[in-house]
Design a protein around this nucleic acid. Structure first.
Lengths: 191, 191
DNA sequence: ACCTGAACACCGTTCAAGT
DNA sequence: ACCTGAACACCGTTCAAGT
């Protein structure tokens, strides 16, 4: 390591920091995501990160919203089908980033631009399904909570009494789809 | 503080430690629950706790299962009503311990004796409702995930896009009940 | 068996200084 | 503006010792 003195640039970027955070998360899970580890991977002093990120919390917020960019928008206008598509895509994206799911749960649950975009899409479909007023927001929240919750369950984060055998990915997917159908049936038939 | 030397008893108990942990949690939330703070409240050195608790993780596990002891068992045999009762009671108990809800989510989600007991009760009701085989466990997990998820949402832990006004307790309760009805309708009608 | 003092190996974050 | 060194105020946990 040819060392830099103070004032010498390391070419640090916000995007480079996020990338390092992602690979750290993928490799060692949530508990290995520390500012010091990120700095270490980038060959930089821990406090150098604070020139590009306000604090760890803001960094994690960015991480969470970035993932939601991968969620596919529905390809049809029919409400039930459309909702099934967005929620299924969200579920798959969350499973693909299983290490982040506990963060969505414990933390605020993403409030960035991508979360906003998906929320608006869901609301549109719910209105098309005949919901109005407060029940639109209610149904949206129920669907989101259900999806993150099931993703947490499928992502090896055991919930509830623990005798059950470990869930296989395809079984988890079926289970998610079945519960989602239950919910959508209840939501649409209640109008 | 008349100080004790090494070897002198402080009258420490596992139950006293749990009580201190609970009040710390109630006062300052999850982030104020540290081994050192517990020790401080009990007038004891931090490492003294390790004579009564294996580690912080085990302590939190006990905390989580203790809360579930408050959940009321259903008073009727009719499956839908019984399930509505257990889940509603669980929801209320979780809301009464809002500070613990993120822990249920992020962490394993309780595997102690009380969690087992409630799981068995739910399974009984689901079987009475006509479910069989794998769908019993599926339905139970869906109901548990939904209940903890909605409790998290109601307990001021925002989930999803964030324009919504803060949810009032009674609104949250209504929302939980509505989604639960959706789920139960879907679960029972699918048989 | 139960507790203390001291220490280890960490955290996130701030501050002053260098270029 | 971007980075470093050093430090602050914390963590959970372990180890050796005292009674």
């Amino acid at each position: 390591m040819a060392s830099r003195g103070p004032g010498q640039r390391a070419g640090l970027t916000r995007e480079a920091i996020l990338a390092a955070a992602r690979s750290l998360l993928a490799a060692g899970g949530l508990e290995s995501l520390t500012m010091r580890a990120i700095a270490d991977d980038l060959g930089v002093a821990p406090n150098a990160l604070y020139s590009h990120v306000a604090n760890k919390s803001a960094l994690v917020d960015d991480l969470l919203d970035d993932v939601l960019a991968e969620v596919a928008e529905p390809s049809v206008d029919e409400p039930s089908t459309g909702l099934r598509q967005v929620m299924a895509s969200t579920y798959e994206v969350l499973l693909a980033h299983a290490d982040l799911v506990p963060v969505y749960l414990a933390r605020q649950g993403a409030r960035g631009p991508n979360a906003q975009r998906l929320g608006a899409i869901m609301d549109d479909l719910l209105v098309k399904a005949g919901l109005a007023g407060a029940s639109v927001g209610e149904a949206r929240r129920v669907l989101i909570v259900y999806t993150i919750g099931l993703a947490a369950f499928s992502a090896q984060i055991p919930i509830g009494p623990g005798e059950d055998p470990p869930v296989r990915p395809d079984e988890a997917r079926d289970q998610f789809a079945r519960g989602l159908d239950w919910l959508l049936a209840g939501i649409t038939q209640s109008q």
